[in-house]
C-alpha cells in the first residue's frame, strides 16, 4: 500500500518534470528563432523610437486638453508594442502550416497540450525580450524607479503578451487563406490596440468606442501598468481581466490547434 502510494507520487513528479521540460523545449525553439533574425529586433526598435520620439513628441505639443500626454502615450506605446509583437507568432505558425513544417512538428513526441502552451510561452517571452529595452527607455525617460512598480508593470506586459500570443495562434490556425490571414491579423492588431486606453485617454475616445474600450485586454494591461508605474497602486480589476484573457485565448488557441490536426488545406 505504502509502496504503491510512493510509486504514484514518483510518477506524478516525474510527469510534472517532463511536462515542464517539454513546455520549455517548445518555448526555447520559438525564442531561438528571434535570435536568428536580429535585424527584425532592430527594425521594430526603430519603429518604437520613431513612434515615441517623433510622433508622441510632436503630437503631445498639439494636445493641450490632456496634460502630459507624452507620459501617457509613452507607457501606452510600450503596452501596444508588446501586444503587436506578440501577434508575430501567428505568422510563424501560418508559415509553418503553409510549408508543411507544422505537420512535421506535430509528429514530435510532445503531447499537444505542452506543444501549444510551449509555443504561446515562447511567443510571449520573445515579445518580452523585444519590449524590455523599450520599457527601459520609457522608465528612464519618465523616472519610473520604484522596483515594485517596475515588477508590477513587467507582469502586466507579460500577461498581455501571453494572451495575445494565444489569440494570434487561434487566428493562425482558424483562417486558412493567406491573404485573409494577413489582413485579419493586421485588423485585429489595429482593433485591439486602438480601441483601448493604451494610447488615448478614455474620456477622449468617441462615444461608440468608449462603450467597449474598458473591456479590451490592452486597456487592462495599459491601465494596470500605468497604475503601477505612477504609484496609484495595484489595479486588481485589470489583473483579473488580463488573467481571464490569457485563460480564454490559450484555451481557444489549443482547441483550434487540435482541430487543425485533423487536416485541411492552406490556400
Amino acid at each position: 500500500m505504502s509502496s504503491s502510494t510512493i510509486q504514484v507520487t514518483d510518477s506524478s513528479e516525474l510527469s510534472a518534470q517532463t511536462t515542464s521540460r517539454l513546455v520549455l523545449q517548445m518555448a526555447r525553439r520559438d525564442i531561438a528563432t528571434l535570435f536568428r533574425t536580429p535585424w527584425i529586433i532592430i527594425s521594430r526598435s526603430l519603429a518604437f523610437i520613431i513612434q515615441l520620439f517623433v510622433f508622441a513628441y510632436l503630437i503631445s505639443g498639439l494636445v493641450i486638453s490632456y496634460p502630459d500626454y507624452f507620459r501617457y502615450y509613452a507607457v501606452g506605446a510600450v503596452v501596444s508594442t508588446v501586444a503587436s509583437i506578440s501577434f508575430i507568432i501567428g505568422y510563424d505558425i501560418f508559415e509553418e502550416a503553409e510549408e508543411g513544417l507544422l505537420d512535421y512538428l506535430l509528429t514530435l513526441p510532445i503531447p499537444r497540450r505542452e506543444f501549444i502552451i510551449g509555443r504561446a510561452l515562447g511567443g510571449a517571452v520573445r515579445a518580452m525580450i523585444y519590449t524590455i529595452p523599450m520599457f527601459v527607455i520609457v522608465a528612464v525617460l519618465e523616472n519610473f524607479a520604484n522596483p515594485l512598480s517596475l515588477i508590477g508593470a513587467v507582469l502586466d506586459l507579460f500577461l498581455i503578451a501571453f494572451g495575445v500570443t494565444g489569440l494570434s495562434i487561434t487566428v493562425a490556425v482558424s483562417v486558412r487563406s493567406a491573404n485573409r490571414f494577413d489582413v485579419v491579423l493586421a485588423l485585429l492588431e489595429l482593433a485591439v490596440t486602438r480601441a483601448s486606453t493604451a494610447l488615448y485617454p478614455l474620456n477622449f475616445l468617441p462615444a461608440y468606442v468608449k462603450v467597449f474600450a474598458p473591456f479590451s485586454p490592452v486597456t487592462f494591461a495599459a491601465d494596470s501598468a500605468r497604475a503601477a508605474l505612477t504609484g496609484l497602486g495595484l489595479d486588481v480589476l485589470g489583473l483579473v481581466g488580463l488573467l481571464a484573457f490569457v485563460a480564454i485565448f490559450l484555451g481557444l488557441g489549443a482547441t483550434f490547434y487540435f482541430r487543425r490536426l485533423e487536416g485541411g488545406v492552406y490556400a
Partner: peptide
C-alpha cells in the same frame, strides 16, 4: 476572389478614421 478581404480593408479604414482620427479630433 476574396470579397471578405475588401471588407476587412474597409474595416481597417473605419478604425483609422472613426477611432484614431476621431480621438485626435477630440484631443486637439
Amino acid at each position: 476572389s476574396d470579397t471578405f478581404l475588401i471588407g476587412i480593408m474597409f474595416a481597417n479604414f473605419c478604425i483609422d478614421l472613426f477611432v484614431t482620427a476621431a480621438t485626435f479630433g477630440n484631443l486637439i
